[in-house]
Every structure is written in structure tokens, then in C-alpha cells.
Design a protein around this nucleic acid. Sequence first.
DNA 1: CTTATATTCGGTAACGTACACAGTTTGCAG
DNA 2: CTGCAAACTGTGTACGTTACCGAATATAAG
Lengths: 353, 353
Amino acid sequence: MKNEKELVGVKEIARRANVSIATVDRVLHNRTGVSEKTKQKINDIIKELDYKPNILARRLASSKTMHLYTLIPAVSEETDYWSVPLQGIIQAEKEIMLYNVKIEKLFYDMNDKESFMKQTRVILESESVDGVLLAPAFIEEAIAFTDVCQKRKIPFVFINSNIPNRKNLSYFGPDLFYSGYTAAHLVNYLVEKSDQILLMNIAKDINSDYHILKKEEGFTEYFTENNPERIIKQNLDNTDYQSVKKTVAKVLRDYPDIRLIFVTNSRVSLVAKYLLEKRIEDTLLVGYDFLDRNIEFLNKGVIDFLICEKPQEQAYRGIKALYRYLMFEEKQEKEYLMPIDIIHRENQRFYRN
Amino acid sequence: MKNEKELVGVKEIARRANVSIATVDRVLHNRTGVSEKTKQKINDIIKELDYKPNILARRLASSKTMHLYTLIPAVSEETDYWSVPLQGIIQAEKEIMLYNVKIEKLFYDMNDKESFMKQTRVILESESVDGVLLAPAFIEEAIAFTDVCQKRKIPFVFINSNIPNRKNLSYFGPDLFYSGYTAAHLVNYLVEKSDQILLMNIAKDINSDYHILKKEEGFTEYFTENNPERIIKQNLDNTDYQSVKKTVAKVLRDYPDIRLIFVTNSRVSLVAKYLLEKRIEDTLLVGYDFLDRNIEFLNKGVIDFLICEKPQEQAYRGIKALYRYLMFEEKQEKEYLMPIDIIHRENQRFYRN
DNA sequence: CTTATATTCGGTAACGTACACAGTTTGCAG
DNA sequence: CTGCAAACTGTGTACGTTACCGAATATAAG
């Protein structure tokens, strides 16, 4: 590394404007106490010189810590999906720790609105909150919460699912409709025109599960002009294996032409378990999410394809967006839609969630 | 943001060791001029306190610029592939520019060893080189070059293709064998057992094209235990459209059972052009790389799948690895194999190269 | 015991910004 | 004009490191 200097700083601006650096500092942070005239002059010079503050010096001088809060569902025995976004948060934290950033990680129970509310209160009662990352499972409550954030000028980003028309800094997550549409396009390559396709929704409360509904919409939309009648739809609001077993058995009996089962979320492993148990090998299986138990069945050849939208990266990017916005006043993309990845047994080992 | 302080710095270490901060600084950078005894003492204290230098202050105080060099093929009319990694370099540059890093971007002609050599000489004759990112198309020359780098303690990373047993800091790129293997696994879903598959290599000098050879190896390996005789292989060492046209026409005539064409690199668009021209719609087409001209045919439904290994991210990560290593002395992964992505018409719009 | 020469070490000015505090100017009523 | 806020501006120190300069001490040579 070599010496080299020619950067303009407040000092140079102050010199050119015939003021002190303190005054320059004041207009930089548009604090009060500067006459319109000098303010104008300084701003002109800043623009002319295309002055970029030295982040290092700034951060060093103001020995403050940036406090970010994250609120996502806790991992439960029902699903360990959320451990993946958590990893993304931790990864981002490691990177920016050096720059005086602290991340407070809060969790709520996916089946308990009250736990969500409680945690939002924890955040709002904290004495120093600079930014919030939120996975908004409960729409109305999330709206109420982010309303307060907005009033307090606290920037917030959504991950995993979006709430339209909010003043969020950014959204990182899938386009759910196209996620289903993409799956359909792939599925269409895998079966013959005459084959039937089973679409399965497995979740406690399907009708309020935005993810499932949107994916299904995309999937069926794709097939509207392509023999829609061959899509068999089956909802199941019990997530235990026995229920899955019974239901799948029945449907396969009723519709013998089913050649492929598409499960709209990570519960695909339950169906896989059944197919493996019954040694059903001529039925293709497509589902969601790069989770250990799914990969296991992928490797065994029971699950054929997994669709995945980089949950870890969603959270990672979410944190980084908040950080960059607060630190550098960098503008952020309002909506960053994640790639829709197609995973099978052979490219699985290289995938990064 | 809120005030908060309790970090230990050189000052505290100096106080505990009864020396000045200058001495602490000396052992921190193991400079000469410190007695073994005090050095020992200071090192002990450093370890005890688990002292982590403040990067901000460090970077600020040493007003030096880090000079990185990149050497990749130039974009040519033959292929614009390399504009993508270049974007990755620029992206990384934007991020770390603020931290006093300069990136010197050099290019060479893929068909001209001498141009490569010349550029390596440019690098080696520069007065300040802190790190090098290299796409090593010419193996022997790259070895000679990186030998010198190693002697001079200049860290270097490879992207796009690896050279085994080198002391490179890191490699970011595909596992080519599995790239072909992955393609084969996908292809196997797309065709019937009785269908024939055409494997096409289109490149000037196929036998020294490591990428093509390795991918082909992976692809054919997959089919060894799966009717290998149905794979028709066709090399073509002219990259103009007329040659492609003639060759494809002939092969399709000779082997009427060909249901799918697999092109081992981004030249797939040439074949696509032909299929579109001749309105051949019942033949599937699979190839490589997320380039504009390929995506065009993807959208038209002529190309069915593209395999892609994030060339932009390769370069981006390469630069970041160098930066982190030099700045934070962070250890880097020796080999970071990129995911092998499967793109089709519907997930294409969300893909990030 | 000098004098010369290494070898160790300490003091301190930067680096570019933030901010508390002190100082100066301006406006306006008396 | 004087006084006295209010509005404006400048000075100085701090942030944690780096690195230069020179001082102190130790060691060797004469």
C-alpha cells in the first residue's frame, strides 16, 4: 500500500467558504444556527466538490453504537425454517460488528399473535432503536407496529413476505405468484399432457397463509391454458405425519393418473416420507425450501425438485440495507425480489441458502 | 444511536504493560526495535484482553491506499461473457472505495497468450500491488505469474477456473465436472429413455478448453450407467453461425431420434438461432450462461434451460476476499464453489448473475 | 573510562469528523 | 448610543491508530 492523498474534507470546504469547519459540520448535518447565505455557499461548494464524508472518521468521531432490531418467528418443532434467516442475520452482524453495530434479535411464536405484539412493544420501549428488520406474519399487527416506527422515523425492512403500500425502506423476499408459476413451468416439463398433477397445501390455517395462497394462484394460473382439469387440489390443515399419510393415500387411490405431487411449502418432506415408506417410485415430487430434512429426501431420490428463495440471503441483505441506509444515507431498492432457485439432487451440494 | 464505551485499545494495553503506545504499536505490527521481554509481555496482555484493533482508526491513521489489480479477458465480439464478471468487480469497488481501495482493471485477449503475458508484466512492474484477481485462461503463464506474486507475498485469487495446488488465497468459480453432471441430471428428466441426446462443443480450440472438457466429462459420466450410447457427441471448432447451421442440420438429419441438444457453453444461442429459423419446436435445447442473447431465446421458448454459475458474483466475492484478507487479516475459504443454477423462462426475470 | 553505535523506547502530530463550549455579530427595544 | 437577547460562528479536544523524530539506555570498541 502506498501513500496518496488528495481527498477533500470539511477542512477544504471550510477554507473555500471562509468559514470554520464547525460551520461546515453544521450544514452537513443540517443543524440550526447557520445563516441562509453561508449555508447556501457551503452547500454549493459541497456540490461542486462532490464531497463525500469519510465514513471512517465519522464513525470514529461519533463513538455511538447503531442499534438494529430483528423480529422473526422462532424456530419451533413444527418448522425449523426460521433458523435459516437467523443465520443470515448473524452473518451480516459479523460483518458490520466492527463498525459499532449491535443487533438485538427478537422472536415470536408463529401461532400466537400476542407474542408478536409483545415483542413489538419490547422494541418500541427500547431507548435506542435505529432500525428494524421484520418478518410480518401478522399483517394487521405489523401495520400497526410499522406505523409507529414511521412516526418515530425508524426505518424498517420486511423480509419473507411483503405488505404493499407501506413506507418500508425495503423488502427482501420472493415474488410468491411467480414462485408458483415457475414451479408450474418446471412441472410441465416433467409430466406428459395426459398425466394428472396433485397440488397439496399442508398448513394449520391455509386460508390465511399468504405464501401458500399466492403460490397456488401462480401455479394454477400457469395451467389455465394447459389442461387445467388435470390439476387435483388437496388441502390439509393437519401437519402431523399420520394425517398426511392418510390423505395422500386416499388421493392417490382416487386419482390413479397422478404422476407428480407438488407441495406448496416445506412440508413436502412429510409426503416424501410416505412415498418412501410405500416405495412409490414412479411419482415425482416437487416442493419448497432447502432444509435438511428435505435435502435428505432429495438425496434419496424421493423428492425430485425443491424450489427455494434464499431465506438466509433475504435476512442478510435486509440487515445490510438498514446498515447502509443509516450509515451512508444510501438509497435502497424498495423491493428486491429474490431469485427463484431450482434445486435437484446434483446441484444441491453447491447451493447457498 | 447511543453512546457506549468500554473498548480496550492500545492505550489500555500500554498502561498495563508500563510502556508507551508507540511500543505497543511496534509489536502489533511486529516491527523491529522492541526487546524480547517487553514484546512478550505486551503480547500476553493483547491475548489476555483479546484486543481487536479498531479498523476505523487504523484505516484513518494510515492514509494509504490499497491497490488491487484484476486481470480478466476482454469482452470481444466473439463473446461478451466477460462483461459480467467485470460488473462484479465494479460492484465490489463501489462498496469498498470508501475505504481507500483502488482497483486497476486490466484485460487480455483470450486468443493471445502474449497479451496475457504483457498485462502480467504491467502488474509486476507497478510500484504498489497489494492483491491480484485473476481469471487464468492460460495455465502455464498463470503459474509463472503467480509464482512471482507468491515470492513477493502478493495474495492472488482465481475466478472462473482453478489451478490446483497453487498458493492462491482463494478460488471462486464453478465445479465444472458437477456442472456437467447437474445438466445431465436435469436433461434426464426431460427426455424419454429411448430419445437421443446431442452434446455439442462449440469453440475455437476445444481440446485446450478446460471448461468444455470438464463439463463434457461430468455430463457423459452421468449417463454411463444410463444408456450411454444415446449420447451423440459433436465438436465444432468454428464459432460462426454458418458453420453451426450446417453442422446442426447434418447431425439432426443423421440422427432423427435426437430430442434434446445440450451445448456446453454460451454458444447455445447459435443453435437456438438455427432452431428458430427452421421452426424446429420439438427439440429441447439446454445450454450455458445468463447472457442477453441467450435470455432472448429463453423468452422465445427456443432455449429451454440455461445453466449458470453466477459469474458476476464470482468476481465480486473475489475482490471482497482480497480486501478482507488485506484489511482485517481475515482467513478466506480456499475454494468457494459457486452454486449451479438452473434457469428457465419463468424464473429468469428474478435471476441475479 | 571515554566515545561511538546499536538497540529500545516515549512523545506527539497527524488522519477527518463530531460536538461542547466560547466567542462574535446582528437586531431591536429602551 | 447602550444593553441584551438571539442568531450565528470559531476554537479546541476527542475518537483510536499510525508513524515520524528524537531521546534514553545498553552495548561495544578504543
